[in-house]
Design a protein around this nucleic acid. Structure first.
Lengths: 151, 151
DNA sequence: CATGAAGTTTACGTTAACGTAAAGTTTTAC
DNA sequence: GTAAAACTTTACGTTAACGTAAACTTCATG
């Protein structure tokens, strides 16, 4: 009861015997938005930024499995802390150059940068947590002192 | 030859017997900018946002040790991921009535919220670090495979 | 005296990743 | 057959923390 969209409906009412497919060939922008729990605005924005370029049927965007994988990669990149620009750089390299050594090295550099930044952030957070705990202790002490007179 | 600023002027007019000071009493905006390696624009911005309010000599801002400590706290907060608004909230609470039970409890709630958020962030970062390491391993494997043929 | 270094205010510009609204054209549903 | 859904483009708005430029005053110095 979760697929009430165009393509799903099409599959459900598909009557042609030789065309029964387990995997969808095409997706609407709404399909993808629903699947990945993002807005259509985001998907169009990614296209605007040159990260995707789906086919059109007239005005309407038609997404293939390849586009879907791209979107998935974009979102994974985001989860990993990559900017859209960084992800686009990787895509461009891949598009031009298959999976070149160059691209892999770029990827590794990016990953290393991220890891370094995250480790720094991790340390910072630990420090703050300790400091917060210290301040908290101070507050609690002061508070117990104050409620001593006023129980 | 480095003190041609407000503090020098203050020293000049100093009549108290203990005239010789190891610590500066006053600072110019440039002094602080240099000391903390930030721009004067930033310092004025913090004032604009209500985090500081230095005295004036005419138009010119005159900063005291207390202002300097404030700035230091602002920057520490920033390093640790606090927004200026959050830092301001803490400042305001402290300025108003750092000793009232009510304020202390508010403070404790705020601290607790922050700690919770930071612990969550900590976990998130750890997860991403692991994922990054996994992706890195994949890249390295692919790379070693590619450079096998092309040493 | 000129000049340049440091200070001031006002105010628009920047970045990232979309949100939101308007205004229009299909598509689908009942 | 008509209303609702879904799609489209265009374009301005949002947030945080400043950057940058203009246009000015004050101060110190060679």
């Amino acid at each position: 009861m979760q697929n009430t969209t165009a393509s799903a409906m099409a599959a459900e009412f598909e009557t042609s015997p030789e065309r029964v497919r387990r995997t969808q060939d095409f997706f609407s922008i709404g399909d993808l938005a629903k699947e990945f729990d993002i807005t259509t605005r985001s998907i169009r924005f990614y296209e605007d930024q040159g990260l995707m370029s789906p086919e059109r049927r007239g005005q309407t965007r038609i997404y293939t499995q390849k586009d879907r994988v791209r979107l998935k990669l974009i979102l994974r990149g985001k989860r990993l802390g990559f900017t859209l620009a960084e992800t686009k750089t990787l895509f461009d390299m891949y598009d031009r150059d298959g999976s070149s050594v160059n691209q892999l090295q770029t990827m590794l550099r990016l990953i290393d940068d991220k890891k370094l930044a995250l480790r720094q952030q991790l340390e910072d957070i630990k420090v703050v947590l300790h400091e917060l705990t210290a301040v908290e202790s101070g507050c609690l002490a002061e508070l117990s002192e104050k409620t001593k007179e006023n129980p």
